[in-house]
Design a protein around this nucleic acid. Structure first.
Length: 461
RNA sequence: GUAGGUAUAGCUCAGUUGGUUAGAGCAUCAGAUUGUGGUUCUGAGGGUCGUCGGUUCGAGCCCGAUUACUUACCCCA
């Protein structure tokens, strides 16, 4: 058999030990904050029934779902006329009935509907699992990546939104990030604006265009608005809103003026004010610190199922896209037959956070240590002597290993070095006779003879 | 879907107007050093130059096709 060049599928990655230490640090930190705010963890299968997923993400999204080919002779029952080259879409349902999950929100909605009798609402769940998208990979964008979602269903209270702000603030602060901005907007404000200019049906086109303001500038946005069917007069009305500046309070005040004839728009403004009030009562520092929480009218996010608050989080210390986002969506579970259940949720972009922490060198050093002690292996006699020592160390909760063969000491030391092991115990005939083992500190290079009890004490600290 | 870029040792990459036997660093292994790593020195192994075809006396280099990877756009996290 010809050997094949080993590789992983496009857009996927291996995670080596040193990366896993850091990734787990990120996941554990986020989890601890989620738990602290009362969210409980669930997991759902990697694959869902295809019909659970199709139609939930729009036409573009459906194309990006990884379908799983049926097992067995999957073409046997397909009628020959369905096999024509222009019938790929029609064929999918015949040869595929399962697909990899595309996000965590739809499987969660499915979960809520299926388990509604066991769940007491409001239900606060978090979920950290990989999702798959058949997208074209590029920088910071993968075909397999992890989402860290926290959602609450069955609670309309804006306290939830306020707590999301606190969660972002606490988690990102724990990572050591100092300068980040939690941007907030409200879908109802955007609806109101579309209403005021008399084009409510074009709200999605409007949001997609103005969302790009900081990327393509005002001229670019205007150009895109024209392409999407807005007139010059529409745009003149839009401009002052898009370019709104000042403090959160000032923005809210001017919005109240602009939106005074739009009931929906004013409701959005009121919601934002309520959220700010909650945040201020919970942690006044967030509102007082510069730019930490910012009302941004141009924030739209592509997802058009948001109905209330919209969040996006960016770090200002590194040039990087958003590292988190979320919002409120009414009727999450309607598509599965459970009506009138509102939900709100947020997500952390773990892969991007990883890149940010790496660039700012914010990973704690302790996260890099693995084995604490390596016992060298001189010969069978020393090995036999070392076995109970090894067990003793482990019984004390010390990560320890015995080099598995009596290789040259140089190789054993090199092993400890490459694995970043801070201590090596050397056991030879002298040590066996005296019962005092040589403990070498790999950082300082110092070595001393100690009894096992003393070693445990020293290594444990 | 649209438009670029790249493909040479396990990894990162050099490779002159096309010219003999294709190189470096890192990594690996061995030795200097039979009880001591990270530094140093010496040596070794490791290549169908992505694949197929074309031009040429001669191709890693030029041309065409193909595949893989990659970057940007659309969209998204």
């Amino acid at each position: 058999m010809a050997t094949i060049k080993p590789s992983v599928p496009k857009g996927t990655r291996d995670f080596s030990p040193s990366e896993m230490v850091k990734r787990n640090y990120i996941f554990d930190t986020i989890k601890s904050v989620f738990r602290k705010f009362g969210y409980q963890e669930i997991q759902t299968p990697s694959m869902e029934n295809l019909n659970t997923l199709t139609g939930k993400y729009g036409d573009e999204g459906d194309k990006l779902i990884f379908k799983i080919l049926n097992s067995g002779d999957y073409l046997a029952k397909v009628k020959p006329e369905k096999l024509s080259p222009d019938n790929s879409n029609g064929l999918i349902s015949e040869i595929s009935e399962k697909a990899l999950r595309y996000d965590l929100t739809v499987p969660f909605a499915r979960y809520v509907v299926m388990h509604q009798n066991e769940i007491s609402f409001p239900f606060k769940r978090f979920q950290i699992q990989p999702v798959w998208r058949a997208d074209r990979p590029q920088r910071g964008r993968y075909r397999e990546f992890y989402q860290c979602d926290a959602d609450v269903v069955g609670s309309e209270s804006l306290l939830n939104e306020a707590e999301f702000v606190l969660i972002y603030n606490e988690a990102l602060s724990k990572f050591g990030l100092k300068d980040f901005t939690i941007k907030i907007n409200n879908r109802k404000i955007l609806s109101g604006i579309a209403e005021i200019i008399g084009k409510p049906e074009l709200i999605v086109d409007m949001t997609v265009a103005i969302d790009k303001l900081d990327k393509i500038g005002l001229d670019g946005v205007v150009k895109e608005l024209v392409e999407r069917g807005f007139t010059e007069t529409d745009i003149e009305k839009l401009k002052p809103v898009i370019l709104l500046e000042g403090s959160n309070e000032e923005k809210l005040e001017s919005l109240k003026g602009v939106l005074q004839t739009s009931e929906t728009g004013l409701k959005g403004v009121a919601e934002i004010e309520t959220i700010f009030n909650y945040v201020s009562a919970l942690n006044a520092e967030i509102l007082s610190s510069n730019r930490r929480l910012e009302l941004d009218i141009t924030l739209a996010r592509g997802l058009n199922y948001y109905t209330g608050a919209i969040f996006e989080v960016k770090t200002n210390e590194v040039a990087m896209g958003s590292i988190g986002g979320g919002g409120r969506y009414d009727d999450l579970t309607g598509m599965f037959g459970l009506k009138n259940l509102t939900g709100a949720g947020i997500s952390f972009g773990a892969d991007r956070i990883y890149d940010v922490l790496e660039e700012l060198k914010l990973f704690p050093e302790s996260a890099e240590e693995t084995t604490k002690v390596l016992i060298s292996n001189f010969d069978p006699e020393a090995e036999a002597y070392a076995l109970p020592v090894l067990q003793q160390l482990r019984a004390e909760g010390i990560a320890a290993e015995l080099y598995p063969s009596s290789a040259k000491l140089k190789k054993q030391m090199g092993y400890a070095d490459g694995k970043n092991i801070p201590y090596v115990i050397l056991i030879g005939s002298d040590e066996i006779q005296s019962g005092e083992l040589s403990l070498k500190d790999m950082k300082s290079g110092e070595q001393q003879k100690l009894r096992i009890e003393e070693i445990i004490k020293k290594v444990k600290h």
